[in-house]
Computed example of a mutant assay.
Amino acid sequence: MAVNELTLPTWNTLNEKRQRFIFQQLTRYFLSPLLTVDAIRPVTATFYGQTLHTFEAMIGGEWVRLVPGMTNVSLGFTTNHQEELAPYLTQSDLTLADIQQMLSPVRKTDVPPMLVATRATPANEEILGRVSLTTRIFKGNHMAYAAIRAQVLALLDRHGSLDPFSQTGWPATLTSGSVKLRLASAHHYQVSIIKSWRKADLSKSLSYFGFRLPTQDQYEYLQSGGNPSLFPFGNTLPLEMPRYLPNRFGLTIPVKRTGSELIVEDLQKSTALTAQPTAKEALALSPFYQMPGEVDMASAVYRRVATITVN
């Protein structure tokens, strides 16, 4: 495959057959063979008139999507446009100096394509895979699952529907000790282990399977889609915040959050927010928001990525 095939806008010019082939090759060469690809499906994300056709796969218990890269992408936010920001400054009672202090500096960089988890995971959880409610078959990290298999099956037998094919009667979450099951579909639970670990331990665990935490540049690109506005939706806030922020790549980014999303660098890229934060608090929804200091692992989330490098 050619490098430019994996960057915007060239990726969108490829037909679906070519995209699927490239995606399959990437999952084989950039991720551990210990993690099987359980399902592949095409997805389309529409963002303010921009449409992205790509693919995602069920890998290790969660959907992982190909996000094309971009060359010479603008990151950070230019804060010297008083008129452009006037509505938000009025809403938030912040000044340009306040915003300058809390946003990353403007720069241009090349961002590589990535395989990205579509949802963020609580930082004190390690996703192992998923288990079928109908067959009890597990797919994912079998080595780690072996130690908790009996607990998982006991949870399913104790709390599940008498009819294994029923789509009702299954609780949203089940827990037993360090085991946590999260209902992921009508027929599957996602299987996780509650962990008390440091950021370095999480990073090491991800690396075993070809994943890592995103860098600051990668995080800002994934959140902003290369859009240099203050928020993904522009420079002003809507009267009522949606549950999830619009995203060029179709990633799930909730407004309500417990804390920051982890990146490689020791920076806080968000903070705890309610579903309807004040205008001032909502600045933390900006892809370019940052505060110095280590992130609290008890309230943080993480989104695993695999960086694609093609020589």
Rank of each mutant, 00 (worst) to 15 (best):
L273W: 02
R149V: 07
R65K: 10
K280L: 04
T78M: 03
I40P: 00
P292I: 11
A275D: 12
T168G: 02
P254H: 05
I308D: 11
R212H: 06
S166L: 09
S299E: 11
K195M: 07
F21R: 13
V106Q: 03
N4E: 14
P9S: 08
E84K: 09
S92W: 11
L213E: 12
L237V: 14
S185T: 13
F55G: 06
V43F: 12
M58V: 01
I22N: 13
L174G: 05
A279M: 09
Y219C: 00
N247Y: 01
H187D: 14
N4T: 14
N141D: 15
Y189K: 04
L267K: 05
I263M: 02
Q19G: 14
Y29E: 15
A154C: 11
A172F: 00
A184V: 02
Q216F: 02
D266H: 10
L222W: 09
G293I: 10
F231M: 01
S161L: 13
K17H: 12
S205N: 07
S224H: 02
I40Q: 03
N4V: 12
M291S: 05
R149S: 15
S196A: 15
V310T: 12
L230T: 01
D98W: 02
A300N: 13
P33W: 05
Y289P: 01
L230C: 09
E5M: 10
R257H: 04
A144R: 07
M114T: 10
K108I: 00
G210W: 04
S299I: 08
M241G: 05
T78K: 04
L237C: 11
A146K: 12
D98L: 01
I40T: 11
A279H: 06
